[in-house]
Amino acid sequence: MDTFLQIVANGLMLGGLFAIVAVGLTLIFGIVKVINFAHGEFLMVGMYLTFLLSTGMDVHPYLTAAAVAPALFVLGALTQRLLIQPLMSARDEHVQIFATVGLSTALMNLALLVFGADIANTPAHGVRSQVMLGEVRILTGQLWVFGAAILLVIGLQLFMKKTRTGRAIRATAQNRAAARLMGINDKFIYILTFGLGAACVGLGSSLIAPLYPTSPTIGTYFVLIAFVCVVLGGLGSIPGAFFGALVIGLVDALSGFYIGSDLREAVVFTIFLLILILKPSGLFGTRMNLSHVSP
């Protein structure tokens, strides 16, 4: 029983980790409707920035988020403005995907060029210490990640519901043409949303860096999992992405223990396929018209 509780706890913590990556992606995928293959590399860039800042200035990695998140916002906004926006009118929507593949390849290899293939270790500054919840062991850093994911979801949700900009973003997501008729500058909204999505993952990377070794290829694992979480949660739904991530974290941990660690990816992707085929609106999503995605 203790073991089971521990696995569940591990799964939830892992879910928190996936969530903080997936929330940013759901903004980009759900609203700008671009499959951003470079999302994992955004995380990787954020983790290296955290590493550089926290070792260079000898500050707590969490504090670097104040610089990393804005930096990633700029990276995301530039990606949308320079790479995606010019392709929005292209006859074939496929080209955007390949543009992000190119960006992903370029960023990953740039990291290899600058940092080498070796891992970089961000100093832990105490976030690797344990707390006991009954018989269950959890790292303080994992709790911070989990807490931050919840706050991020609540914060974004309030932003979307209560602010003018947030409402404009939602309107654009639902119907771009109608939003434009209402006087919303859709191009600006997309740039903002892409930047915001990247900034979310920037925040996440400052929290994740002290927990995991950073390497140029760290993003590749996260990006597919993050897509799974987003689709599971329902496209464009921020709380959905969070709960989707928790489900995937739990599935991952439980299947790793009960089925075997070599098959857990297969389990995760099979569940993903079942959801995609049987309930494409996602486990937690409201009915969203998928035809918005493709013309």
Partner: peptide, 10 residues
């Protein structure tokens, strides 16, 4: 290391 991949991506 990585230069080729970087150029390729760009």
């Amino acid at each position: 290391i990585g230069l080729h991949g970087f150029v390729y991506g760009v």
